[in-house]
């Protein structure tokens, strides 16, 4: 690592710690939430901001020490686009396998057969 001006040092550290904390909380949620559909919430949401923070830190670091650099944004954009899609597919798989839900889940489906994926 090279020497940085004071403000850049603090800002980069802030973004990295922020990102790492959110990624940690997301993984913690993956471990301790009660059922699959609830567990799905934690990683899909918290990893976007977790990786987002690390990407911001990396972008700032390389822009300050080296030439102006934005290409880490590609990773953030890519995750931003794909996280909802993989969450949606996993939720579909969970519904399809009819995994048991937490006991105080309110099921407000009026016509559950509307949402099955079986060919009938």
């Amino acid at each position: 690592m090279t020497d940085l001006p004071q403000w850049a040092d603090l800002l980069i550290s802030f973004f990295i710690v922020l990102g790492a904390s959110f990624a940690f909380i997301g993984s913690l949620g993956l471990l301790r939430l009660p059922d699959f559909m609830a567990r799905l919430h934690a990683p899909t949401k918290n990893t976007t901001l977790g990786v987002g923070g690390v990407v911001m830190g990396s972008m700032l670091y390389f822009s300050v020490t080296d030439a102006f650099s934005l290409h880490e944004l590609l990773i953030a954009i890519f995750l931003f686009l794909t996280a909802p899609i993989s969450a949606h597919l996993l939720a579909k798989a969970g519904l399809h396998l009819e995994l048991e839900l937490n006991e105080n889940t309110k099921d407000l489906r009026k016509k559950p057969e509307q949402y099955t994926d079986k060919d009938s």
């Binding site: 899909t44 976007t48 686009l81 909802p84 949606h88 939720a91 579909k92 969970g94 949402y115 994926d117």
Partner: peptide, 14 residues
């Protein structure tokens, strides 16, 4: 659907 998945407390499932 993607917006719903990314915003507070909800995930679009099907």
């Amino acid at each position: 659907a993607s917006t719903i998945s990314l915003t507070p407390g909800t995930i679009s499932a099907e």
